[in-house]
Nucleic acid binder design. Structure first.
Length: 236
DNA sequence: ACATTAAATTCGA
DNA sequence: TCGAATTTAATGT
């Protein structure tokens, strides 16, 4: 429990380090703006399997993933679960719901123990009104997401499981949505299965296939990406 | 669903 | 505090 390394823990109210690390969009904010944003932020921890917010719930925060992994999706009236996206460290989402001033359209659940940063609505809109850079960030992000959703539609059509797994991985590698992502993903095959909408064994097979193609390498609890470009294009 | 292996945790000195 | 023993988690088939 006390095996703290050389990393400095976030000092209670000094330094914008920890905050800037979890939120790239803060890079261009002034110190004064940063202070204000931090005042509107809270950190919350969720256990594996915990629901962050339900569909139709009023949940007035913009959500950032500090660490861990969450799944954004819905469940059809027939009870079938559909995953729209996964989000891991560095990702921010929920702006669509805030901007349209409506209730959550999706259910968000933690796939493992996860720490989230929640920015309250008031501060979010203050940024929206006052920072051009913040707006640029939002537009870039929404644009990236649009691309992902278009891919999702294709995905539902073709049932090629390996392709679905490749897409799920690629979406997590998106450098715009997840700025601090490297070439290794700390994700288990079960979690990946949940994101791709396939069973764990199928995810395992798909990973084997992708590894055989030289696109990635699988190790315990982690996937090393060798060729992100070809992975994204897999199945085309 | 089952067997195997990796990692995390517990426990005794 | 160390490492062996046990339990839990992830993988491969």
């Amino acid at each position: 429990m006390q095996k703290l390394d050389g990393e400095h823990k976030p000092s209670a109210c000094e330094g914008t380090d920890w905050f800037r690390r979890i939120a790239v969009w803060s890079a261009k904010l002034s110190d004064a703006q940063c202070l204000r944003v931090r005042a509107g932020l809270q950190i919350r921890t969720y256990e594996r399997g915990a629901t962050v917010c339900e569909q139709n719930e009023a949940f007035d925060y913009w959500i950032g993933v500090v660490e861990g992994l969450v799944k954004v999706g819905t469940v059809t009236p027939e009870g079938k679960e559909i995953t729209f996206a996964g989000a891991h460290a560095g990702g921010w989402f929920g702006e669509g719901t805030l901007l349209k001033r409506e209730r959550r359209r999706y259910t968000v659940t933690a796939l493992r123990k996860t720490k989230l940063a929640l920015l309250d609505k008031k501060t979010f809109f203050w940024l929206y009104e006052n920072s051009v850079d913040f707006n640029h960030f939002l537009i870039a992000q929404i644009n990236e997401r649009l691309g992902q959703f278009i891919g999702l539609i294709e995905n539902e059509r073709k049932l090629d499981t390996t392709t679905r797994v490749a897409r799920a991985l690629s979406s997590l590698l998106n450098p715009v949505l997840y700025p601090d992502v490297g070439s290794r993903l700390a994700i288990t095959q079960e979690e990946l299965g949940l994101l791709a909408g396939v069973s764990r064994p199928v995810a395992n097979q798909a990973l084997g296939e992708l590894e055989r193609c030289g696109l990635l390498r699988v190790t315990y609890g982690e996937i090393a990406i060798c060729d992100a470009g070809r992975l994204r294009a897999y199945g085309e």
